[in-house]
Design a protein around this nucleic acid. Sequence first.
DNA 1: TATTGTTATACTCTATAACTATA
DNA 2: TATAGTTATAGAGTATAACAATA
Lengths: 146, 146
Amino acid sequence: MTSATRTPAAAVDEAWALMWQLVSAQRPRFVAVAREHDLFPPQAAALDRLDPQQPVAMSELAGKLFCDPSNVTGIVDRLEARGLVERVSAPHDRRVKMLQPTPAGARLRAKVHAAMSAPPAELTALSARDADALRAILRRALPADR
Amino acid sequence: MTSATRTPAAAVDEAWALMWQLVSAQRPRFVAVAREHDLFPPQAAALDRLDPQQPVAMSELAGKLFCDPSNVTGIVDRLEARGLVERVSAPHDRRVKMLQPTPAGARLRAKVHAAMSAPPAELTALSARDADALRAILRRALPADR
DNA sequence: TATTGTTATACTCTATAACTATA
DNA sequence: TATAGTTATAGAGTATAACAATA
């Protein structure tokens, strides 16, 4: 088997493999960023999804983190113990608890987010033409109405 | 702030965000594939990196998994207990243990790998032209000599 | 002495099931 | 009855440090 294209799917298959590889390779960076701020990776992932302008419910956060709601309880407990987030009962349904980042939590979130949103060197090294084309293709693959 | 391009970095930044999002969204699929084969996610990730044709050392696997070597001991213990992999002392240095998948381990690895290497619907829906361009750009970003 | 892998330890993460309180 | 979140439980994953075997 060679690298020659034989089927229409070959290009997508290889593109996906390369994309997966590139994103996976960022994991050490993500873990390092989290640790620099005394956060475990799931805590950093959770904090990153807590928009100060638009609080989310516990169950909603569980969906964003792809894990069981019972799990989120512990993660939020630890964030709350550090004064990074507060649970606020929803007015319309007191069973629901909305997660509101504190000022300190919002600041930390912004720092972590900025560190993680920086593209890896492999992408910043691309030509302007390639970067534009890449964004255009990914925009078509991922419409904004997601 | 709008979506208009203002700096040369904007295209790369957005492309990276979209790429991260697309890969992250595959996690439930990865977890599901692992569970279908009675594997925990780290076990599936480890098995995926155990090439039957080219055994790797414990420390090498730790590097591929981005975790501490002490950790790999437990993961490999569980794979070995299920008869999926064997530890073989390296001839040139008996401190080193090479990981050799058993026939059953190699079969399971192939099944898991095939399930995970399938591109997500967002990519298979791309036009042939976009797919080709995407692969070409990613090949330039990730040279084969990695 | 240095290195590979293991063990000991302590914690976080994780899902399942049962529970509480609200609806 | 149904749903949101918690608690109880059991186990896997994780890093740090100390250790044994080998180099």
